[in-house]
Structure formats: C-alpha cells, structure tokens
Design a protein around this nucleic acid. Sequence first.
DNA 1: CGACTTTGACCGGCGC
DNA 2: GCGCCGGTCAAAGTCG
Length: 582
Amino acid sequence: MKPSSPGKKNLSSGNNEVSVKSNTVRAEAEHSMASSSSRKEQDDELESAKAEMGEVKEENKRLKMYLNRITKDYQKLQMQFYDIVGQDSKRSQAPPNDEHQVVQQIEEEEEKEKEKEKQESELVSLTLGRFSSDSKREDKGKASGSSSHRKEEEIRGSEGLSLALDYKFEASKSEVDDEPLPNPSPVNSSQEHKEEETWPPRKVVKTTESGGDDEVLQQNPAKKARVCVRTRCDTPTMNDGCQWRKYGQKIAKGNPCPRAYYRCTVAPSCPVRKQVQRCAEDMSILITTYEGTHNHPLPMSATAMASTTCAAASMLLTGSTSSAGSSVPSSISSHPALHGLNVYLSDNSKSKFYLPNTSLPSASSHPTITLDLTSTPSSSSSSFPFNRFSSAYPTASRYNTSTSLNFGSSESNTVSWGNGLFTYGGSTQQQPYMKSHIGALNINGRAPPSTVENNIYQSFMQKNHQGHPQPPLPDTIAAATKAITTDPNFQSALAAALTSIIGAGNNGGSGGGAAESLAQKLKWGEQSFAVNGNGCGSSFFNKSTSSGSQPGSSIFLQPNALPFSTPKSASTSPSDTGNHSN
DNA sequence: CGACTTTGACCGGCGC
DNA sequence: GCGCCGGTCAAAGTCG
C-alpha cells in the first residue's frame, strides 16, 4: 500500500474539480453575456467571472504544487525504504561474530533511527505487540534481531501500517504459531486471520508441528502466555463480551472449587481458551485465565478485554523469549519521542513479585500475567480500584523468572512488572526529567543490569492524586469499571504500560533496536494515545482507524474501551449469563 | 433438533 | 517407570 496514492487521488480529483469549476464559471459568464439585457451588467459579470477564474487558477496552482511536493516526498521515502531494506538484508545474512561489532552496529542503528524519527516525526508509530524477532534471530544474536526490528520500523515509516504488518507477519511465522499476536480488532482481523488460520488447536498443533516449524518451536519453548484476571464477581463467569463454550471441568489440586474450561465459539477455529475458577481463599473472587488470541473480529464489548489480555500476554511472551539486551535502555531512556514515557530497566527483577494464589491455574508451565481487580489486604488500602496488575511466570517452573505488575495504591506506589518490576512513584528518579513527576514506572530488566524508567502514570496520577483526589471507592468491579471507564487517562496509562512493556520486551530480544519500538511509536498525548494497530493495541483503541493505508494513521484510546464489565451487565455471551456454576 | 453442559476417560508433562 | 496433575476429548444429558 502506497501512502501517497490516496493523496494523489484526492489531489487529482481536486484538480478536476477545479477545472470543472472553471468551465462552469466560463459557461456562466457566456450565458450571462448572451442573456443579459444590459451591457453594463454584462461587463460586471464578466469581470467577476474573470476574477473568480483567477482565484480558481491560483488554487489550481497551489494544489499542483502540493501534489508535486507530496509526490517528491513519497519518492524520497520510497528510495530510503529500498536502501534500508537492501542494507538490512545484507546485514542479516552476515551477522557479526564479534561482540564489539554487535554493540557498534546497535549504536549505529540507534543513531540512524533517531535521524529517521526526526524525519518521520509526523508519522504515527504503530508499534504494539511483538516484533518480528523470531526465535532463530534471537538465537543468532542481538544484531540481527535489531536489524529486523529496524527494518520493520523503517518499513513502517515509509510504507505505513499495512505494509509494516505484512512484513512483520512474513518475518515471523514462527511467532504466529506459538505466541498470541493479539489482534482482536476487526480492522486488522483480516490479516491476523490469515495468519492464525494456521494456528490449529492444541491437538492439531501436535501433529503439524512435526514439520519445519518444529525447530523454531523447540528453540522457543515458551508456551502460550496466559492472562489471569482476578475480579470480585458473584456471577459464575465474568462477562467479557465474548462467546464461550464450556468443554471441561476439573477439580484442581489445592482448590475445592472446580475449574471450568471454556473455548471461544465466536469462530470455530478460534484458539482462545479461558479457565474460570473461584479463588480458594476468597470465594467471591473469580479468577479468569485467558490463553491465546482471537482470530476473528470481536464484538466491541469483547475487544477491550481481548486486547488487554493479548497485550499482556504479548509482553509476557516477549519478556520470556527475549534476552533483555543491554542495548535497550540507552535508546529508551534517551528517546525524545517518549513524551513522558520513560522506561527504566534495573536488575532488581526478583525483589518484588506478586505471586498469584497457589490455586491459580497459572501455576502451570505457562507464563502468566495477572490482572488483579480485587482489593485484598495484601495490598495496601487503596483508593484506586484497579489494584494490582501482576504477572508471574510459574514458580518452580522451567521459566526461571517471575514477573509482576502491580497497579498499587497511591500509598504503596508500587507497580511491578514482568521480568522485573515497575515501581510506581516510589522509585528514586535518577534522571532529571523524572524529578518533576509524581509517579515513575520502572521496568526492571530481568537479566541485564540495565534500566528503563517509565513514568507513564504521571499525568493520570497527577490528576487524580493532586488535582482531584478521588474518594475511596468500594472494592467492587463496578467501582473499578467506573473508575477506569471514566478516566481516559488511566486507560491511556494502562495501554501505555502494556505497550511499553511489549516494546521493551521485544526490544530486549532484538537488541539495539529495542527502545525505539517503545519510544518512537508512542505518542503520549494528553488524552489520546496512538499505538500500533497491530494486534494488541488495537483493542484499546477503537476501530475507527483506517485500514492503515496512510502513514500517520493513528488509533486513539477511547473511553469505555476497557474490558471489564460489571458482573451484572448485559452479556453478549449466552454462556456468560446462563452459565453453569462451578 | 441444534447448541450447550456435564462428566468420566484419556493423554501428556513433570517430579520422584 | 510410576503416579500425580492439568488439560482436553467426547459421549450422554439438558435445554430452549
């Protein structure tokens, strides 16, 4: 898809309109000449017609100039794109062996990207979700990963969203197979559908994986990430807007309450599954665990949750599959495009964890991220209903890491995140521009002693804790929903958090390109938040996006886009309303 | 009658 | 190798 095509078309049609207008004017003038009885009137009309024609001609000229300019820009970008693609293909063919060479290359790429970002500052960066650094590339080395990352970015810059996504899919076939590329939005669903049709249900995977993809899958042993949502809910299931069919029920060890297994029935081939279970310690808490990515358009009410889970899963996976490169932080922290989104990676990853209940389904070999919408004594008293958002790789599992993200209260000021933790507000700000912010979101890198600071919550928290202190809300989902849906800033913050992690995770794996995915591609506005339409993010942002034909297409976070509906809300899912009791 | 739920059986991964 | 456990299947039952 060529970004300039629509522009050209519009402009040319505009020119046509102009010439038509000129002809009309001329005809009117002639007609008036013929029909006018008074010569004076004829002269007047002629003059006015001439004047009008002059204006039209001027406008025509302007439009032509505009068209020329756009055409030149397009050609320029196209040339840059081809150059970059050519360079990257050469690089990826011969990955550097020397570590110093890798670092040097990464630095060069970062510099180039900064320059490019300046040039393309008007383009909306649409990076949400994993990058195309597939397992093989990650194994080969950071340099090749970063180059793929960079390639993608530049494609994005020159060709727009659609091409970038296409390229991404081509570059990472394996990724589609073993990891959920979130894309609940109908806008992108066609593309994702194309890819995920090849993602068979579990049993089929077993048989089909014996092929060439097997190698990739073995190299990337991470299983599908899960997103666990803890809510206080009286109903058997949480209404997430999707349609589910129960296919099994089990009594899990350590929890007297049975665990119900559901699969998505919106599309027959949809691989998404969810598990629903009551918390053993607090039966009022409903634990819903999502796994997989929808390969079909979702109803509006379902996209939010789907995208949330997908985004969370995505970042979890990126964190799990990537070896957080040391090159990440430099570009992230210094990136000018962050717009207040500062990321900090540190090595304290294991100092703070929110570990889910032992009875949680997440206690399997799947990496799991938990969104805790309950307020429990373990978390400090909070006026903030969306209390915890944590993820954890299963303890004592093959994933030797645990992750957590807590949307803590204003008092605890702790937001922990995967492979490490976000520290919200309580962290020591080391960078000058952070000092003015109340909150800081720290992402502590899992492995490397690198740091990324992220203060995406600043605007939200400033608003809510300084300007408009909110009274304590009841500890209910309804309260959470209300607070979330009524505060677009928080939605933005959440989206940014997810997105940033995804970017960081991706980048961690792909090396130097790291930060830019996070950095350049986030436009952190006051109320709006533009991200990549690919998968994850799209849900946060409604589907008003164009199909990505134009560079600069942006997806904006919409109020009420958040997933969590009240338990009693009307359900679009029959199984949700009339479902079985576990 | 079709869609959905229930429930016991089965399978594979993992730890011992 | 064996048993435990989580997850899935599929036949039978239920419901509208």
